[in-house]
């Protein structure tokens, strides 16, 4: 068991209703999980709780036997070793692509830092854009840089918040397939949040359906949404 989430409850200030209602699940290494739900279902909140950006009222969260939070402990977001790709990417506008990717690698030596940054930029096929600034990139390119930046420090878990919502329809298909192959090649455990069933269907190994903060269903895409769409071919390096 890689990741264990137990009985997590959360409510926003000034609200009596639970935004997250007794959320429980376990995730295996390398699995890609999709949290699927309508807006207001609490899916992004759950992501923020796992990232450490919100403090849950109760519950436990263990990542590779290490407690991220329970009744007594709370690990600050910067100490968790979890990567997060923001919905709007949040690429630092005052830094180049390379500097953005290097940002999370301050624990490495100079040469190692550069090496690792180049590695992940190659992984997302953005090696030629190192010197550019975020505003000089298209939406799809920005997203790949954001992904590279999150992957660079080798996070134990990668979180993605609505990774396709800022892209136009055509790009969305392309990026979706790319993302799937990148995640599989990097063999990284990841959770992404989406409102789009197709997204969940294409990428996820398992889907968690969330409604008003409650899990209504967990299962493989084929069990939940009928016949799966054609999965893209993955070449594992």
């Amino acid at each position: 068991m890689t990741i264990e989430i137990k009985d997590v409850c959360f409510s926003y200030r000034n609200s009596k209703e639970l935004a997250i209602d007794h959320f429980c699940m376990t995730i295996e290494t390398g699995e890609v999980i999709s949290i699927l739900g309508r807006s207001g279902s609490g899916k992004s909140t759950m992501l923020r709780i796992l990232a450490g950006l919100e403090i849950p009222e109760k519950g436990e969260f263990r990542l590779y036997e290490e407690t991220m939070f329970d009744g007594k402990h709370f690990v600050q977001p910067e100490k968790r070793g979890i990567g997060l790709v923001f919905q709007d990417y949040a690429l630092f506008p005052h830094m180049t692509v390379l500097d953005n990717v290097k940002f999370g690698l301050s624990h490495l030596s100079r040469t190692e830092r550069l090496k690792r940054a180049n590695e992940v930029l190659e992984l997302v096929e953005m090696g030629d854009y190192k010197k550019r600034y975020p505003h000089q990139l298209s939406g799809g390119q920005q997203q790949r840089v954001a992904l590279a930046r999150a992957l660079a420090p080798n996070p134990k878990l990668l979180l993605l918040d609505e990774p396709f919502s800022n892209l136009d329809k055509e790009l969305q298909y392309k990026i979706r397939e790319e993302l799937y192959s990148i995640l599989k090649r990097a063999q990284i455990t990841s959770i992404f949040v989406t409102h789009d069933e197709d997204d969940a269907h294409t990428i996820a190994d398992r889907i968690v359906k969330l409604d008003k903060g409650k899990i209504t269903k967990i299962g493989r895409p084929c069990d939940m949404l009928g016949t799966p769409l054609k999965r893209p071919e993955v070449i594992l390096k």
Partner: peptide, 25 residues
Amino acid sequence: VNFSLASRMLGASVTKTFFKVDIPL
């Protein structure tokens, strides 16, 4: 707040984030 949260998710403390991300922006 997203730039700062992104920085923290990449392992930078609030104070490091303040000097490296917030101040330049």
